[in-house]
């Protein structure tokens, strides 16, 4: 992509908050101390200017691994208990999908399956792939990887679906001994997984896809 000018080559930085194009003075030797600190803030919104998101690889890896650790109990532990007069039924995420498929509506079961299983797994795989390939400075399928990142950002928060379902059912199904729904610890882990994967995808800098090696700063 040598035909198109890149900001780093021109000594420019785009403010991450307001988008203003600023001059990169990080390497300017004529400035020192306070002057340099001032120049590193966006003149329009005051946000600190970074050529790339700081420590993008380390932060994204840490958040992604933390999210994955949370994802295990989120799937193994039940997320919801349905109790009625003569039976108690604990549901995991996947058994909830199966039940919805059998009893309710297969269409919705597909949506819940996508939001609760496909999207988180896709996020782990996609962000892992993006991290590994960018860290190696790979030129493989850059455009597709850039699009993959945008897809992950776009669909990420829809995973909260199951958390809201459990919350709504808990508040609704409260017929004393006849029928009750209670949240179980799995739903807490699942909520944390979603938040952590969202933070992970936010801390990844897609510009790293287009950089060569050794560009994390």
């Amino acid at each position: 992509m040598s035909a198109l000018p890149r900001a780093a080559e021109l000594g420019l930085i785009a403010c991450k908050v307001c988008g203003l194009v600023c001059r990169n003075v990080r390497d300017d030797e004529r400035l020192d101390g306070d002057d340099r600190a001032d120049a590193m803030a966006c003149p329009r919104c005051g946000a600190t200017l970074h050529r790339r998101k700081p420590n993008s690889y380390v932060r994204t890896w840490a958040l992604l691994i933390a999210a994955f650790i949370m994802y295990i109990p989120a799937n193994v532990l039940p997320i919801m208990r349905t109790a009625s007069l003569n039976d108690v039924d604990d549901n995991t995420i996947i058994s909830g999908v199966v039940e919805l498929w059998r009893a309710g509506s297969p269409n919705l079961a597909v949506i819940v399956f996508s939001a609760s299983i496909v999207v988180p797994v896709l996020k782990f795989l996609a962000l892992g792939t993006l991290l590994l390939s960018s860290q190696r400075g790979s030129e493989w399928a850059r455009l597709q990887r850039a699009k993959l990142y945008r897809l992950v950002e776009l669909i990420g928060y829809w995973s909260m679906l199951d958390v809201f379902v459990v919350a709504l059912l808990t508040a609704l199904v409260r017929f004393s001994v006849l029928s009750r729904v209670e949240p179980l610890p799995g739903v807490i882990f699942f909520g944390l997984t979603v938040v952590l994967t969202m933070l992970a995808s936010m801390s990844f800098d897609p510009r790293l896809i287009w950089d060569g090696k050794d560009s994390d700063d």
């Binding site: 992509m1 198109l4 000018p5 890149r6 900001a7 780093a8 021109l10 420019l12 930085i13 785009a14 991450k16 988008g19 194009v21 850039a146 990142y149 945008r150 897609p206 510009r207 896809i209 287009w210």
Partner: peptide, 9 residues
């Protein structure tokens, strides 16, 4: 204008 996703100006 700088592309936020790839830093092209």
């Amino acid at each position: 204008l700088i592309c936020e996703h790839c830093d092209t100006v």
